[in-house]
Lab assay of single mutants.
Amino acid sequence: MIINNLKLIREKKKISQSELAALLESSRQTINGIEKNKYNPSLQLALKIAYYLNTPLEDIFQWQ
């Protein structure tokens, strides 16, 4: 199971779900699903999230 700190990191950087979704060329619903652990992002999307949040991938997503 993958757990994530996306919501915590996103809020700390003062970025809304909609703003992050626009940067990622994704939907706000996708970001919401990832944050609620209802959806696991593809590797490509996970890497883009890490890039746009300027945060190491392993700080956002962790195996448990």
Rank of each mutant, 00 (worst) to 15 (best):
G33K: 15
F61N: 00
E19M: 11
N5M: 07
Y51I: 07
E11G: 06
I60W: 03
S16Y: 04
F61R: 00
N32D: 15
I3A: 07
I49H: 00
M1R: 07
L24A: 12
K14M: 11
Q44S: 13
Q64D: 15
N32H: 11
N54C: 11
L23Y: 12
I31W: 00
I9D: 01
S16D: 04
I3M: 12
R10H: 03
I3E: 08
T30H: 11
E35W: 03
E11Q: 11
I2E: 05
L6A: 01
Q62Y: 07
N40L: 14
N5L: 08
Q17I: 14
L24Q: 00
K14A: 10
A22S: 12
Q44M: 10
N4Y: 06
L23V: 11
W63Q: 03
D59T: 07
K13R: 12
I34H: 01
S42T: 12
L45S: 01
N32P: 02
L23D: 05
D59I: 07
K48T: 05
I34P: 02
L53E: 01
I34Q: 02
L57M: 09
Y51V: 07
N32K: 13
T55S: 08
Q62N: 06
Q64R: 12
L23E: 06
L45N: 02
S16E: 04
M1S: 05
L43A: 06
K13N: 11
Q62R: 11
A22K: 14
S42K: 05
E19A: 14
Q29E: 15
L20G: 00
G33V: 07
Q64W: 07
Q29N: 12
Q62E: 09
M1N: 05
K36R: 12
A22H: 13
S18Q: 13
K48A: 10
D59F: 09
I9R: 02
A22C: 13
N32M: 13
W63G: 03
R28Q: 14
L57K: 01
T30E: 09
F61S: 00
Y39N: 07
I60Q: 01
E19S: 11
K36A: 13
P41W: 04
P56Q: 08
E25A: 12
I31C: 04
E11A: 08
F61T: 00
L20W: 02
Y52N: 05
L53R: 00
W63Y: 06
S42V: 04
E11D: 08
E19D: 12
L20T: 00
K38G: 07
E19H: 12
N54Y: 06
Q17M: 09
K36F: 06
S16K: 08
T55D: 02
A22R: 14
Q29L: 10
E35T: 02
A46S: 05
L43G: 04
E25F: 08
P56W: 06
I31T: 01
T55C: 07
G33L: 15
L43E: 06
L24N: 00
L57G: 01
E19N: 10
W63A: 03
P41A: 04
R28D: 10
A22T: 12
I49G: 00
I2N: 06
A22Y: 11
S26C: 15
A22W: 10
Q29S: 14
L45P: 00
K48G: 06
P41T: 04
Q62F: 07
I9T: 05
E25H: 15
N5T: 02
G33I: 08
Q62W: 06
I34A: 02
E19P: 01
E25Y: 07
K12Y: 10
